[in-house]
Amino acid sequence: MSNIVSCRNVSKVFGHADLAVQALQGINLDIHAGDFATLAGPSGSGKTTLLNMIGALDTPSSGEVVIDGQPLARLTAAQLSEIRLHKVGFVFQAYNLIPVLSARENIEFVLELQGVPGAERKERALNALADVALEGLADRRPAQMSGGQQQRVAVARALVSRPAIVLADEPTANLDSKTSEELIALMYRLNQERGTTFVIGTHDPGVMAHSKRHIQLLDGRIDGDGQG
């Protein structure tokens, strides 16, 4: 099974000298194509920091991260942007849709950054909305949708660019249990049907119940990695 992400001896230190905080310590981790992995651990265990490294949002203090065969060390801010644009999809806890754009426009926006032509862009955006069962809400702005609907649009946005990996950081934290269950079921279905690789940072037992692989973090180290 090919690796989508490889972390080798990844450490991350925030701050300096006496105030230094060791957020990650010597992480070695491979994420395989088709994984539906959950990243769990108590607050401060390093989940978000590790997701940031895997998503090319941040660079390690030491060690190496490789995404889809591309080492991230020594890349410029603009080059890291390109990696995120083409290889990584994000789903955030707070939905993070652009408020002045409609659901369709939010999804199209990523494709526009990729330079996808207009007609294809629109078709793919509408298909992505259909995948998350929101085709009727294409022209609604985020403020006109529920939290669950916004998060499904965020999932559609993460998937529409056909990324190598989708990273979701506490995607169900702001949703009620029923909506959370529906969202996870949706992500799981997309993983099963399309083989999309998901890594989900979560505390939610409902999310962990769906995972095929469970990675446990504790104090910046991997405390366990096994079948879900």
Binding site: G55, L57, A77, A78, S81, E82, R84, L85, H86, F90, F92, N96, I98, P99, F109, V110, L113, Q114, R157
Partner: peptide, 15 residues
């Protein structure tokens, strides 16, 4: 926060 999001989605600083 929103500009950070745009950067996370792959928008370059120049854009």
């Amino acid at each position: 926060h929103e500009f950070g999001l745009l950067r996370a989605l792959g928008m370059t600083p120049r854009r």
